[in-house]
């Protein structure tokens, strides 16, 4: 790694720096806490001990936890393909002959970053938290409870996931059905799903 890469502003490089900082802060904090624990009990309620705890128990660990969250939430967005149970869907994404919406979006790079996460999350704070809670549930199933034979979504993909990108696009607005006075309210409200007319986003069954 040359000097330019070390200080580049690329997100992955920033995350590496944040991870390193988190590890350093954690080790310093652990050292301070260990020092506190090895002192005699009478010293532990003295003012120097309280200052030490302020730094080693409160400030540094809090910063470490914050960095752990930032780095973790960033990395988890690209971890969908790490579980083998997702292999059929990942294979479909990369299949040049596939006609599914997910494959087209992926191969044409219509979603440049975090292609899985962009669709499989809501928008706004509540949606992102729900997506993260779902991720925890997936890890639970993968490592503890077991993965069901057939994987299917708990509820249909919200139409607003598609509309978030497409609603104001010229290519969307020039389609007559999208702006039809009768159909447009049904589309915008989610009553009429995009997949009633458009291709399936993913293959229906495991390949």
């Amino acid at each position: 790694m040359n000097g330019d890469d070390l200080f580049s502003g690329e997100l992955e490089n920033v995350m590496r720096w944040l991870s390193t900082a988190g590890i350093v802060f954690a080790l310093i904090s652990a050292g301070l806490i260990a020092f506190f624990l090895t002192r005699r009990p009478g010293w532990r309620m003295t003012p120097p001990a309280k200052w030490l705890l302020l730094v080693g128990f409160f400030l540094l660990p809090s910063t470490t936890m914050l960095l752990g969250n930032v780095v973790g939430f960033h990395r988890v967005k690209t971890s969908c393909a790490e579980c083998h149970v997702m292999d059929p869907w990942i294979s479909d994404l990369r299949d040049p002959k596939s006609t599914t919406l997910a494959a087209k979006h992926y191969q044409n790079r219509w979603i440049n970053e975090n292609p899985c996460y962009t669709c499989h999350t809501g928008y706004g704070l509540a949606g992102n938290l729900e997506a993260k809670w779902s991720g925890l549930r997936h890890v639970w199933h993968y490592y503890v409870a077991g993965v069901p034979e057939e994987i299917k979504m708990k509820r249909p993909l919200p139409v607003k996931t598609c509309l978030h990108c497409h609603a104001q696009a010229a290519s969307y607005l020039k389609i007559e059905q999208h702006v039809d006075p009768e159909m447009e309210p049904q589309i915008l409200s989610g009553e009429l799903s995009c997949f009633e007319c458009h291709a399936s986003p993913h293959p229906r069954k495991n390949r």
Binding site: I23, A30, L67, R75
Partner: peptide, 13 residues
């Protein structure tokens, strides 16, 4: 802190 260091050093789901 130990779990956090493991998470930062060996990231995985």
């Amino acid at each position: 802190l130990a779990v956090t260091v493991l998470h930062l050093a060996w990231p995985s789901p």
